[in-house]
Design a protein around this nucleic acid. Structure first.
Length: 597
RNA sequence: GGUUGUGUAGCUCAAUUGGAUAGAGCAUCUGACUACGAAUCAGAAGGUUUAAGGUUCGACUCCUUACACGACCA
């Protein structure tokens, strides 16, 4: 396709020179796909040429089109509508294009001028409660962006920075000491992350009661919040933790261990993975070193109370606290350390942070601060900022118990996929294990597609009913197309119809076949676009368009009823290729495809 | 108050980065299974792209102002 476009551009230049004695400026020499209500495949917009050529847009289009038709065999016809020159491509050329793209596997890397060594940090959970719907968007985005970048040939490291320290962890621990009675995930029959979450909730509950109690005794609200016994205990525990107190560290290890087991299970279930784990408990000290470095270089400053700050007002930001007066670290302290560590480990030319857009300011501060420190890798930092997920009832709020739990949601979507599949009753012959795998693949296909089809930077609405839908613009729609193609391939194999044949005898293509080749051929450009914009939504849209085009083709022409053996083989080959590209593109979204469903 | 993001069909989302008559899905209505899988296909209806200006051959897209919603910083 790229070759075809390039030769068309060369031919257009030749036409302009031959007819007008002028060159088309490079900026105006861009071809766009012809809108489907007009004949043709590529369109040149001639409006921008009117001044230089001293002619009207239609006149230019006519003259260029006429010349191409006469001199360029790939162009079989043309039409001009106002300032748009639509070029029709000979069917023989489409067959050539198809032959060329078949020479490469669907998963062949797409060359781009993008980064070559990339770290994608995503997921990055707190260890005090289980994952929820918001984390799912994050996890699916991060996984997918990493896969998309891999598809451009980049070396990608998936990193997970676990927030395993801080006051919120201590809250769960304090509550466990008070109310736990030695409970374990085994004794409670509960996943470890949910157990830790249970105690976090218990802390909040009792803490609020204490505040209420104090307020009833006449203590002012803000003082009550600070002086409530549970909060005091949690803060003391944080200090003990930083001091390395044996008992506290031991409990911390135990509870975090439970949480990690729970997370592992969830990660496995939703099909995401990581090459490298970082723990804030191990990076915050390195962050403190960076703060010292900044002080020594004179780019940070110390206030009278001993706290350390960076002045970013020249960058359009504010003064920002880097280290508290008592020497304890804040969020950004450990981020400075982790950035350094990642660079030491992987020498990235792009470091992507998949973090919700509420952290936009924080990420600007991080990058600006690293620049102040003169870090060579500061420029390479990129915040993939995504919007929050809302529910039909509004924002998710843990206080109001409206948070959608990830494990529960996954169970729901799988159950919905199972119910729908049983209703269709098309899965005869599959074993129980295969069926379970199928339900899982479909349920997650629906959920992942639902969360990934929306432009990451946009806030999105999560409608539970639509998220398990299997029809229309959904993952299972695309998976269904793949299952159909798999059936076609099975039958073709049975009938010994070869996919590889010489199609030069085919005089003309059906419109749906032409459309399919075009759709197939633009895949590399789509991957490049998705990589440049870090947007799985671009891939999601493409996979849908491809499946849609295939379903049109499928309804329009018959494969096995076709009497012309050459055409029959072409159609099988087209089907096979579409199947492979559906599999490849959904793979970039972390979605698997079934052979039957 | 300051910074910033978003605003497109009843609803959820697109729009090749400034191009043609703004497209899909859901929901509503109509048609297609004795054809290779109907989780499909074909069609109808649905729009002052929040509002008002501006830039130009051309604006959902860029600029200005206002409005609405969100986030962040005090």
């Amino acid at each position: 396709m790229q070759q075809l476009e390039n030769s068309l551009k060369t031919a257009l230049q030749a036409a302009a020179t031959a007819v007008f004695g002028l060159e088309i400026p490079a900026a105006s020499l861009t071809l766009q796909p012809t809108r489907k209500e007009f004949a043709g495949s590529f369109t040149l917009v001639t409006f921008p040429l009117t001044k230089a050529f001293g002619k009207g847009p239609e006149q230019i289009g006519q003259a260029l089109g006429e010349w191409l038709k006469a001199h360029e065999p790939r162009v079989s016809g043309y039409n001009v509508v106002k300032g748009f020159l639509n070029l029709e491509i000979a069917d023989a050329e489409w067959l050539t294009v198809f032959g060329q793209l078949r020479a490469q596997p669907a998963t062949a890397p797409v060359a781009t001028d993008g980064p070559q060594r990339v770290v994608v940090e995503y997921s990055s959970p707190n260890t005090n409660k289980p994952l929820h719907l918001g984390h799912l968007r994050n996890n699916f985005l991060g996984y997918s962006v990493a896969e998309i970048l891999k598809a451009t040939g980049a070396t990608v490291t998936k990193a997970n920075l676990v927030n395993d320290r801080g006051i919120h962890i201590c809250k769960s621990m304090i509550a466990y000491q008070h109310f736990g009675h030695g409970e374990t995930p085994q004794s409670a029959g509960m996943k470890g992350d949910h157990l830790a979450g249970k105690y976090y909730v218990l802390f909040e509950k009792h803490y609020r009661e204490e505040i209420k109690q104090l307020e009833a005794e006449g203590v002012a609200s803000d003082i009550a919040k600070k002086s409530a016994p549970l909060m005091t205990e949690a803060q003391q525990m944080l200090q003990l933790w930083e001091a390395g107190d044996e008992d506290v560290v031991s409990l911390w290890r135990t509870m975090n261990g439970w949480v990690y087991e729970g997370f592992d299970e969830t990660y496995h279930e939703i099909g995401v993975d990581f090459d490298k784990f970082y723990y804030e408990s191990e990076t915050y000290l390195l962050g403190k070193e960076r703060v010292e470095e900044g002080l020594a270089k004179g780019v940070f400053f110390k206030k009278e109370n001993g706290s350390v700050w960076v002045d970013l007002q020249a960058e359009g930001l504010d003064e920002k606290l880097l280290l508290r007066a008592d020497g304890t670290s804040v969020y950004i302290t450990q981020d400075l350390g982790t950035a350094e560590l990642k660079y030491q480990d992987f020498g990235y030319d792009s470091s992507i942070y998949v973090i919700a857009d509420e952290q936009n300011y924080h990420m600007q501060v991080l990058q600006a601060t690293l620049k102040k420190l003169g870090k060579p890798y500061a420029e390479a930092i990129h915040h993939l900022s995504y919007g929050m997920v809302d529910l039909p009832s509004g924002k998710m709020k843990s206080r109001e118990g409206t948070v959608v739990d990830a494990d529960e949601l996954v169970r729901d979507v799988v159950a919905a996929a199972k119910a729908a599949t049983l209703e269709k009753g098309k899965t005869e012959g599959l074993t129980d294990a295969e069926l379970e795998e199928l339900y899982h693949l479909l349920g997650l296909g629906a959920l992942k597609y639902y969360l990934l089809k929306v432009d990451p930077k946009k806030r999105m609405l999560f409608n539970p009913e639509e998220s398990v839908s299997l029809e229309g613009h959904t993952g299972p729609f695309i998976q269904y197309s793949h299952a159909r193609i798999a059936a076609i391939r099975r039958k073709a194999a049975e009938l010994c119809i070869s996919e590889a044949a010489d199609w030069s005898g085919i005089a003309s293509l059906d419109g749906t076949e032409r459309e399919l080749v075009q759709e197939l051929a633009r895949y590399p450009a789509v991957v490049a676009d998705a990589a440049r914009n870090l947007s799985p939504a671009v891939i999601a849209q493409y996979a849908y368009d491809l499946a849609k085009a295939y379903n049109r083709f499928y309804a329009e022409v018959s494969i096995f009823q076709e009497t012309d053996a050459t055409k029959r083989s072409l159609r099988v080959a087209l089907s096979a290729r579409v199947g492979e590209q559906i599999k490849a593109s959904l793979g970039l979204l972390g979605i698997k495809v079934p052979e039957r469903m």
